[in-house]
């Protein structure tokens, strides 16, 4: 016998993500989901970003990247609350699921927090598929990766709201063709802002920070 279902395979995660979204809305906190391949510079960008946001914008961080790194230690130095998720405990997952983010968020006091940043697991495939209840999604691509990355991972570049092209300080030493990568990103997501920056020299940070502050403002009056 045939049983009709028409059910989303990820409906449990989607439902949980929707509950997270409601919870974050009540807290009036903007949730930013930051994704990239390993080593693109998520943690480095966050260290510099948080410094520029403080004290104006109260920030907290959930780090989901693989536990062996010392990302949380690096971020705690900025003075903001940080929760490290050890994805190993969840079977060495390749992404953060909504319930994992919810558990981590419950370890934070979000009452006076305006911005909650989630550093996702380094991976350009799986995190694109899993809603965590975020408001904005950011993808980081570094100039030491291939220009064709956006074409290889179109879903990631499609679902994100902004892209950060990091490590621009290295451009003089590489054959990386910046115009090609920008063209590839625009093919997939024409309207998406792309911020070219360097977490090392902080060149290009002001436009990114301004965009982010604006997103936080919008959420506050939602």
């Amino acid at each position: 016998m045939e049983v009709k279902l028409v059910k989303k395979v990820l409906s449990v995660n989607d439902t949980m993500a929707q509950q997270n979204r409601q919870f974050f809305l009540e807290k009036k906190v903007l949730v930013l989901n930051m994704m990239s391949s390993p080593g693109a510079g998520k943690t480095a960008i966050l260290e510099k970003t948080i410094k520029r946001l403080l004290p104006e914008i109260k920030t907290a961080v959930i780090v989901g990247d693989i536990c062996t790194t010392n990302d949380a230690d690096r971020l705690i130095k900025t003075g903001v609350p940080v929760v490290q998720i050890c994805t190993d405990q969840f079977g060495g997952d390749c992404h953060l699921a909504a319930h994992v983010v919810r558990n981590a968020a419950s370890d934070l006091n979000l009452d006076h927090v305006q911005l909650l940043i989630v550093e996702n697991v380094g991976n350009l495939v799986c995190p694109a598929e899993f809603d965590i209840g975020e408001d904005v999604r950011i993808v980081v691509l570094s100039v030491t990766e291939g220009e064709d990355k956006p074409l290889k991972y179109p879903l990631m570049f499609r679902v994100c709201d902004a892209a950060l092209l990091n490590k621009t300080d290295l451009l003089p030493y590489l054959d990386f063709d910046k115009e090609t990568v920008l063209k590839n990103i625009r093919q997939i997501h024409p309207d998406m802002p792309v911020f070219e920056l360097s977490a090392k020299t902080e060149e290009g940070f002001s436009d990114w920070i301004e965009w982010l502050k604006n997103e936080v403002e919008k959420k506050r009056y939602e």
């Binding site: 045939e2 049983v3 009709k4 279902l5 395979v9 598929e129």
Partner: peptide, 8 residues
């Protein structure tokens, strides 16, 4: 990413 039906 949907399950449409099962045959059992």
């Amino acid at each position: 990413l949907d399950i449409v039906s099962i045959e059992v």
